[in-house]
Computed example of a mutant assay.
Amino acid sequence: MIRNLVGSFLVTLSLAGAPFLTGCAGSRASVITPEEVQTHGTYTFTAPPAEVFAATLGALKTLGYPIAVTNEEKGIIKTERKFIRAMAVGGNYSAQAIDFTRQYYLRLESSDGASTSVTADPKVYMGERDVSGDKVWVLEGPEGERELWKRLFTEIQSNL
């Protein structure tokens, strides 16, 4: 029911860090493919894994992402969900607020010990529903996902 109600609205999430659209987003909405994450959501730093791991944790905290899980040996960081916005949806006699949140799953890998690649896979939730695989992402623009990746990687680099 909520999905049908949301589908009847054009919802543009224009807050900082809200790179996605839902509902009738039109031609701007995209799906994030594994190729997109590999091309734009992965960056290699010229630093050993331990340094990049610490720099990545610091960058995520600076960008407002609480950390949920870390495993330095496996090169895994998972953030908690970060609140983006709430949206009221409803009909003639009722309304319900739905929270939109996002989080990152990050993988750090090094083949030589001197450089480390970071892959940041974003996830988006509408309430408790993971909509990350849906056509809800804006990739281009000042708050698009590519810009958010760039900000994350710039912040990591500044911590090295």
Rank of each mutant, 00 (worst) to 15 (best):
M1V: 15
R3I: 15
R3P: 05
N4G: 12
N4A: 11
N4C: 07
L5I: 05
V6R: 14
L10N: 09
V11R: 04
V11I: 12
T12L: 10
L13A: 00
S14I: 00
L15R: 10
G17M: 04
P19T: 10
F20A: 11
F20P: 03
L21I: 10
T22V: 13
T22L: 11
C24A: 12
A25T: 03
A25N: 06
G26A: 01
R28K: 11
A29G: 02
I32Q: 06
T33Q: 12
P34A: 07
P34V: 08
E36R: 06
V37Q: 03
T39S: 03
T39C: 02
H40A: 08
H40L: 00
H40N: 03
G41T: 08
G41V: 01
T42P: 00
Y43F: 05
F45L: 00
T46E: 05
T46I: 00
P49G: 01
E51N: 08
E51F: 02
E51P: 05
E51T: 14
V52L: 01
F53K: 00
A54V: 04
A54W: 00
A55G: 04
T56N: 01
T56M: 03
L57I: 03
A59K: 02
T62I: 06
L63A: 06
G64K: 06
Y65W: 02
Y65P: 00
I67M: 13
A68M: 12
A68Q: 08
V69D: 12
V69W: 15
E72A: 08
E72R: 11
E73T: 15
K74Y: 13
K74W: 12
K74E: 14
G75Y: 14
I76Q: 10
K78F: 01
T79Y: 06
T79G: 11
E80K: 14
R81I: 09
K82Y: 08
R85S: 09
A86V: 04
A88E: 11
Y93C: 01
Y93F: 14
S94M: 05
S94E: 03
A97F: 14
A97Y: 14
I98R: 10
D99N: 07
F100C: 00
T101W: 01
Y104D: 02
Y105T: 15
E109C: 01
S110N: 02
D112T: 10
S115C: 03
S115Q: 06
T116A: 08
T116D: 02
V118C: 02
T119N: 09
D121H: 07
D121S: 15
E128M: 15
E128R: 15
R129G: 11
D134Y: 15
W137R: 03
V138T: 14
L139K: 12
E140R: 09
E140V: 05
P142V: 08
E143L: 01
E145V: 05
L148D: 07
K150S: 11
F153S: 09
T154G: 13
I156L: 03
I156S: 06
I156T: 07
S158P: 04
L160N: 08
